Amino acid sequence: MKISIVSITTALLLLASSPADAWRIRLYENTNYGGRQVTYSGPGNTGSKCFSNIDPLNNKVSSIQYYAYNSDRTTRCCLTLYDSPGCKTKNADWTPQKSCHDEKWTKIPATWNNDISSFKTTCHAV
């Protein structure tokens, strides 16, 4: 049985490829996941990262789907939502403003509806 250079190269590339995304957030313009949408995702490296501007949906988000884990559930990323660019927040009465688990919000509460401008992920091994 011959092993070709292409087979070896393919196998090495698969082994060296980066891991699957550890988290993913999809922001929707309308309730019940309607209208325009924007998706962000990341590898879940340990630490935090601020996504300081969510254009084109800045101050227009009305529903969210958030997936906190990587595919083998060894990394979890917490999500914090902010009402202004640069991950600066207001005092909120919405408890799920911070989530460390998979979440789906079909309708953002009135105090946060159309008021989300940035978000931060904080990732760690499970």
Rank of each mutant, 00 (worst) to 15 (best):
L15N: 03
T75D: 03
F119K: 00
R76E: 10
A11S: 15
V38L: 10
C77N: 01
N45T: 08
K90Q: 11
T10E: 08
V61D: 05
Q65N: 13
N91E: 14
G42H: 04
M1Q: 09
F51L: 10
A22K: 08
T75V: 13
K88T: 03
T39S: 14
R73M: 08
T80L: 02
Y67V: 01
Y28S: 04
T75W: 00
Y69S: 09
G34Q: 03
P56K: 08
S41T: 03
N91D: 14
T106Y: 07
D55C: 04
G42W: 02
S84N: 14
S41V: 02
D102M: 00
C123M: 04
D83M: 07
A92P: 11
Q65E: 14
S4M: 04
Y67R: 04
N30R: 05
P56I: 08
I54C: 03
V6P: 01
K120C: 09
G44R: 02
Y33I: 02
Q37T: 12
L27F: 00
R36N: 12
V38Y: 08
Y28N: 02
S4L: 07
S48M: 09
T95V: 06
E29N: 11
P19E: 10
I8P: 02
T121F: 05
S99V: 12
T31G: 08
K107M: 05
E29V: 05
N58I: 06
E29P: 08
E29F: 06
L27G: 00
Y69G: 01
E103C: 04
S4P: 01
N30H: 13
T75M: 09
Y82R: 03
T10L: 14
Y69M: 10
T80S: 10
T39Q: 15
S48T: 15
S4D: 05
K104A: 14
P19Q: 08
Q65I: 11
P43Y: 03
I5K: 15
W23C: 03
W94E: 05
K107Q: 13
W94S: 03
V38Q: 09
T46W: 00
W112Y: 13
S71L: 08
G34M: 04
Y66T: 00
W23A: 02
R24Y: 01
G34R: 02
V6R: 12
I108H: 03
N114M: 05
I3N: 06
Y28G: 03
R73L: 06
K90M: 10
F119S: 01
W23G: 03
A92H: 12
D115K: 14
P109W: 05
D21K: 05
D83P: 01
N30T: 05
T106V: 00
V61E: 12
L57D: 11
T46L: 09
I64W: 04
T9E: 13
T122N: 15
P109D: 01
D102W: 00
